[in-house]
């Protein structure tokens, strides 16, 4: 097991988890349009499947949000 901080919350995850698998596990909304940072650095969308998370990593999901008028 390893500990990740995902969206501000520390939790246990299985070792060698990929970013794509994490996105699925966390049921990220609109995963095709989410922006991700790992340890405060952007991850290219094309690299999600190959990115293997390490113990202690901090992962953040950034979502498109419209809203306002109308």
């Amino acid at each position: 097991m390893m500990i990740l901080t995902v969206a501000g919350k520390k939790k246990n995850y299985p070792e060698r988890l990929t970013l794509s698998a994490l996105i699925e596990q966390e049921a990220v909304e609109n995963p095709d349009y989410v922006t991700v940072t790992i340890n405060d650095a952007f991850v290219e969308r094309g690299d999600f499947a190959q990115t293997i998370l390490k113990d202690g990593d901090t992962v953040e999901f950034l979502y498109f949000m419209g809203g306002g008028t109308v």
Partner: peptide, 29 residues
């Protein structure tokens, strides 16, 4: 930026970057 749609949000961002203006972006849903 109090607009509701992404075309306007990107337009405001780009214009503010080009004109060197500070701005606040927000979204709600």
């Amino acid at each position: 930026d109090g607009t509701d749609n992404f075309p306007a949000k990107f337009l405001i961002n780009d214009a503010c970057v080009m004109a060197k203006k500070p701005f606040s972006h927000a979204g709600i849903i």
